[in-house]
Nucleic acid binder design. Structure first.
Lengths: 215, 215
DNA sequence: GTCTATAGGGAGATAGAC
DNA sequence: GTCTATCTCCCTATAGAC
């Protein structure tokens, strides 16, 4: 995977920086994280960071791009696995939840990147690539929704609004470890809670909230 | 409403600061907003801010507390208006959407405050009050959900998980003006889109996503 | 590829005149 | 209640030795 790594088990400095930055940016946001602190976490001098990334914005763009690619990969694999539109959508939601649960920084950073566009200076190549990746994710999910509607498996809904709804209900609960834990009384990333979350969300999409008898 | 205002139509400096800070903090986050910039927007010198608020964290706490009170007031009024649990929940969701649509900064700042707890130093009196307000909001919504379940109007669901789901799907779409506009092709705060959002969300809660024929 | 040293600027906050 | 001037600290980024 990494052409420069003779020993795949040893993580390069670049990857160590990316991992540490991901955690810090996710928890506290771009502006609140200083390179001094990041360097401390990684175990390097502050200046050494600039040998791997040319600037702080560029580092953030790299972190953000890596997460978007991870999510895009998950979406593509999940939707490619076949089945009816209903099966594919339900599997997609489950797989995304598993991904977000396995990578605690992803949901926070994804959510941030969706409403912190003002944060970053501008138009590095990595940011442009990320825009494309994000657009690809959205269009893939839209496609399965439209497919299900066309096949008569889904109600007739407004696809863009449903897209926003799905993002909110899938991503948000994993974006806030502390608040989520307050509400649930348990760590949302704990396997049992993850499983329950998948079940509850699947049932809500299948049946809505109203009781069958009340219909 | 303001005891010190002889002329209610003239906004005090304190309120001007709160309004400007609310907009800036919502768009860019706590750490990214400098007091110099805030002072410029308000039209004051930087030092004058410290005559109205003792520190930046305390100012942020005041802004955050004001928003939480606004939302809490909306929740209490909406739930107090009576009707069945179904009617009260549906009205609550509609009223919250109207509030978030009317106050574009609220959704962003609320969402931030739900997953940026690490942002702020600690335990000012205003933050403790805010914690109580937030807890009150959550317990009020939980109450109507449990009531509907007990009355057999709602399916048997896991209330805390549904709470997280509702927050995500109600708040998130209004937290990101730019991304939301990209997805919808229109400004999410436009009256027509707000109306459609309320309808789509109500229908999703009533029926889920699956087509009636497919059941 | 990592380090020390430092430049250059902006941050939050204070002092004190008006 | 607002201002100017200033303090101290930390920020991103660079220079250059090893």
């Amino acid at each position: 995977m990494n052409a420069t790594a003779a020993h795949p088990h040893e993580q390069s400095s670049r990857d160590k920086i990316l991992d540490a930055a991901e955690g810090l940016f996710a928890r506290r946001g771009y502006a609140a994280v200083g390179l001094r602190e990041l360097a401390e976490v990684v175990g390097l001098g502050k200046s050494s960071l600039f040998h791997h990334f040319e600037s702080k914005p560029q580092l953030y763009a790299a972190v953000s791009a890596r997460i978007l690619k991870r999510i895009d990969g998950c979406v593509e694999r999940s939707l490619a696995a076949g089945g009816s539109a209903v099966q594919r959508l339900e599997r997609l939601v489950e797989d995304l939840i598993d991904l977000l649960a396995a990578q605690p920084a992803d949901a926070r950073l994804l959510l941030r990147s969706l409403f912190e566009d003002d944060d970053l200076p501008g138009e590095t190549p990595e940011e442009i690539e990320s825009k494309g990746t994000l657009a690809n994710i959205m269009s893939s999910i839209s496609a399965v929704l439209r497919e299900g509607m066309d096949a008569g498996q889904f109600r007739t809904v407004h696809v863009p609004h449903l897209l926003l709804t799905l993002i909110g209900q899938v991503v948000f609960p994993f974006a806030s470890r502390e608040f989520g834990a307050d509400i649930l009384g348990k760590d949302p990333f704990e396997p049992g809670e993850v499983k329950r979350r998948k079940r509850e969300l699947r049932d809500l999409l299948r049946h809505g909230l109203l009781a069958p008898l009340g219909r």
